[in-house]
Design a protein around this nucleic acid. Structure first.
Lengths: 121, 121
DNA sequence: TGTCAACATAGACGTATGTCAAAACAGTTG
DNA sequence: CAACTGTTTTGACATACGTCTATGTTGACA
């Protein structure tokens, strides 16, 4: 397993988009995250992982959901991993991925100028 | 001014990412929006527009904030416009842009599995 | 009408991205 | 150890993207 990034954008950012202009640095950090989510396959991977039983899924589960080669799925998982949106852990033969919900929450908060959402689940 | 798109993702999407897997179609629509926000310049434009007095800004205001050519700014505004995140209106010599807050709110809601945020401002 | 200012479009160029096949790596099990 | 399964890495390729300069287009105004 390769490096897990320091989750820059989680710590760094930010007051909501519409409240005050983003700094150049904040924009770079946020753009990195949105870029990781700018591919349909990666969004579905994210969703599959997040909604999977136990909050985690192995690559074998994920790859079956697509009509793409397994290395391609692995590539997309790497992009998500390096963006800080997910983490992967090897257990035996399989690698299990889970999302970092704080990162999603932070992104969500940047998009609206309101009170933070009340998480029910 | 060119076509304003039908804001597909606003109507279409969706229950939160982590609640159930996105369909391929939902993922495509969402990815289009996230891709529009995957560039630092476009994020800053979005933020500048949204946080500007009256909720709108003309291109002249926006272009000054960057060290980029005016056509490049115009290109980024077009990307944002075609994604449905902003709209542009010509008034006299100037073109004023404003954001579609519903689209941002919808995106925000997709990212978290909680109650919708209470908008204060 | 002509000219100027604001903004958009067209075309070109280098770089980044998504995909695959092939090869490498890691763990399990015989 | 060898063989096998699950996963990642590498290298190649076509396409998409961000940026620029040059050119159009639109509206104001003398």
């Amino acid at each position: 397993m390769s490096k897990q990034l320091p989750l820059a954008a989680v710590d760094a950012c930010c007051s909501p988009l519409a409240r005050e202009p983003l700094t150049a640095g904040q924009a770079v950090d946020l753009a990195r995250l949105f870029k990781a989510m700018s591919d349909p396959v990666r969004l579905r991977l994210l969703s599959l992982i997040a909604s999977h039983d136990g909050g985690e899924a192995c690559v074998c589960d994920l790859a079956d959901a697509f009509d793409l080669s397994q290395p391609t799925i692995s590539h997309h998982l790497k992009v998500l991993r390096e963006s800080g949106l997910i983490t992967g852990e090897r257990r035996g033969t399989w690698v299990y991925y889970r999302v970092h919900p704080e990162v999603l929450a932070r992104l969500s908060a940047v998009l609206v100028a309101g009170e933070p959402p009340v998480v029910t689940a």
